[in-house]
């Protein structure tokens, strides 16, 4: 029978509550500006995102957080007329530098989108897509990585018996986890998530959030979210954007308990505008 004494005995040797240790910056941003044609949508963003942690980008619609996220893996390259100024580095190497190939970069920096976008292929082929275009043909290796990725995305048990069926047969939440598995399959270092749960119901959302929490052991994650509570729940650090500027960037608990800027305070308390 549990008593106070036995409970203490079993717990006393457990590791102490982990303190947030500072890890070196994985993504280093200095004075980053971004323009759509003549209009400037990001103004002098500077921030360091630590390795193997979750950084949340929050702010009202149109504040530039998504644009910023898409600058990290150069998804904005496909937009005509867009250009930038300033520096984004991953592991000290400039993302926009001459030596960096956007296609190569995107293999290292995976992305999950707001609306789940499985390809019109089987579940297996969806996950294997990145590997196949990377040149992997070995069936055994493909099988292995597909299983591992689906397991990591907490989807394996739900789909292992129907890998060859269309990805569209999955529910919305499952499709989103499939997209996460697909991104994980190419073994990126960084995972960018653009409102990955905004189209999902609360249960599916909770699953994605748990997944994010699990994944941060192995990946550096940057997540854009409209949902402040979600940012609070999943992230270690939070950046608050407003009108294309970075207003405040700090540990998540600081942002939500004791923000230093009036604007941040107004936003997180819902007193905004």
């Amino acid at each position: 029978m549990t008593t106070f004494a036995t409970e203490v005995a079993t717990r006393v040797n457990a590791k102490p509550a982990d303190m947030n240790t500072t890890t070196p910056a994985k993504i280093h941003v200095r004075d980053f500006d971004f323009f759509y044609g003549a209009s400037k949508v990001l103004h002098g963003i500077s921030m360091d995102m630590p390795d193997k942690q979750v950084t949340a980008l929050i702010g009202p619609s149109g504040c530039g957080k998504s644009t910023f996220l898409r600058s990290i893996n150069r998804m904005n390259d496909i937009i005509p007329d867009a250009h930038h100024d300033g520096l984004i580095e991953i592991d000290g190497k400039s993302v926009y530098g001459g030596g960096t190939d956007a296609v190569e970069l995107r293999r290292r920096v995976g992305m999950v989108f707001q609306k789940s976008n499985p390809f019109p292929k089987s579940i297996f082929d969806n996950v294997a897509y990145g590997l196949k275009i990377g040149g992997l043909r070995n069936r055994r290796q493909l099988n292995e990585i597909v299983e591992k990725s689906l397991t990591r995305a907490a989807l394996w048990d739900e789909v292992k018996d129907r890998l060859q069926t269309s990805a569209f047969a999955l529910s919305g939440g499952q499709q989103q986890r499939l997209c996460i598995a697909r991104a994980l399959a190419v073994d990126p270092e960084i995972l960018l998530m653009d409102e990955p749960a905004s189209a999902l119901d609360p249960i599916a959302t909770a699953k994605i959030e748990e997944l994010i929490y699990e994944l941060k052991d192995n990946f550096t994650i940057v997540i854009v979210t409209h949902n402040m509570q979600q940012a609070a729940r999943v992230s270690d650090r939070t950046a608050f954007f407003m009108l294309g500027k970075l207003v405040e960037y700090s540990e998540t608990k600081t942002i939500f308990m004791n923000p230093q800027q009036k604007m941040t305070e107004d936003y997180v308390t819902g007193r905004f505008g």
Partner: peptide, 18 residues
Amino acid sequence: MHRHFDDDIEAIKDMLLR
């Protein structure tokens, strides 16, 4: 479903028990 929230709760419980 496992919730990492439960880990936090356990950690607090730990501290309280100590």
